[in-house]
Nucleic acid binder design. Sequence first.
DNA 1: GCATCATTCAAACGGGCGTTTGAATCGGCT
DNA 2: AGCCGATTCAAACGCCCGTTTGAATGATGC
Lengths: 261, 261
Amino acid sequence: MNQRLHVSGPKRTEATVLSSHGQGGRAQADTRTRILRAAETVFLERGFASSSLRTITARARVNLAAVNYHFGSKEALIREVFERHLGPLNRARIAYLDRLEAEANGRALSPERIIEAMVAPALQVNRDALKGGAVFLRLLGRAFSEPGPYMRAFLPGQYRDVVVRFKRALAYALPQIPEQDLVWRMHFMFGAMSYAMAGNDALRLIATCQIDGADDAEAVIRRLVPFLTAGLQGSLAPSPLTAVQASARRPRSGVVARKAA
Amino acid sequence: MNQRLHVSGPKRTEATVLSSHGQGGRAQADTRTRILRAAETVFLERGFASSSLRTITARARVNLAAVNYHFGSKEALIREVFERHLGPLNRARIAYLDRLEAEANGRALSPERIIEAMVAPALQVNRDALKGGAVFLRLLGRAFSEPGPYMRAFLPGQYRDVVVRFKRALAYALPQIPEQDLVWRMHFMFGAMSYAMAGNDALRLIATCQIDGADDAEAVIRRLVPFLTAGLQGSLAPSPLTAVQASARRPRSGVVARKAA
DNA sequence: GCATCATTCAAACGGGCGTTTGAATCGGCT
DNA sequence: AGCCGATTCAAACGCCCGTTTGAATGATGC
């Protein structure tokens, strides 16, 4: 019996790792990496549940059993796909914020710069095309709304530090916004970011005109930052929506309420 | 042989429909409706692909074969779940916008009111608890990021009219924003709305404090509208992000770029 | 050359899936 | 009562899934 009990994966000597990840060669990637890359794109196209190991291994030109040999299970493969990119990304975000705060020297940061610290590191990941960074960014956008148990148990731990640090920074930069509103606006921020990075097709298919630069993450981010910055600082007044709610409750002109027709 | 070829579903006499949807009784819902309701919650919990008809029919206390008898296939069931709520919702949105534009009498609407026309009808659906409106709203938020072929082929048709109308209204209300930017901001809007309505758990699990009122759609929307309104009207200047990009490209302090460590 | 061990491979296993079938049951009609 | 079409039901079908197995392969060190 080999060590297929898979306590922590197969051997992977340092020589193996170097020859595969090695910067120059590009001869034919490691089986592990081939699987990871194929898994990223298949997961992106079909979601986690509908992606079969047979599809993934076929696209990676690798034997079916290789997944269980190298990763242990399908779920472990999913986890690896994310850990490969997400850890570095979130550490870079925190490091970016560290640098901004050090430079600010105790003064409050502008909301815009805080948001930059959130999105600019994603640019780095996106440029890392060799490692499939762009594909991963889109996959990440999708992962947030994955209802399955994998992400439910996984993402919170990956994001906790980032959320804590950015919430603190934003609360300091925007003292006039109550904590509850701030948390909600961060939630909306995540939603818009998630959509933007997933390059969600819904709008693209609908839109009456072409959206240019949808595959250029820099262009997306350049448009995303002003939107988020403005939204984050928006007025807190409940504004006429209260009136609208009231008018909707008793269907004044009957236009809204007539929906069972 | 019965008419199980399922060209357009089984009999469903008017008497049947009335007795099931009937306002008072609530004795024990129609088999069809029981399946639809169970499907909504199961889809919400596990996604479309991972929800088995056996799980759904068990929760609905209905025979497994009932799904294929009443709907024809799993995919057709998914379609019905959405058509039951989404059509009325989007028609109400357009009707709301019609009313606003009629009242404005040719003058431009404020962006805030246009956004109200988008989100206020969702309140109506949410209040329609008997038909599972609240559950549906959360399911709808998730459906947008579903990568499967069902939604890809289905949602665009359901949303085309809404997007066309609202894009036109917003372009008229915000003439200073170029079309491309406007489309992108609508994209971000959809993302934030989708997240807000899905009550996406990511942030809730992460948050360092409780989020109150997460299940109260009115509270969510009251916070969402100012955010979207402000974001939509945000400055168009590329602003310091350009500088940040440059500094990220050649890792000035080395903090951001160090990510392979 | 040979032993050793990591890796690859084809084949199979058991189980859950969507769907189909044909008989049993129900309800309204004459 | 007796019929008939609509609905429910238990059982099965064939398929694809994740995983396991045990032998074949290939490289490494002696």
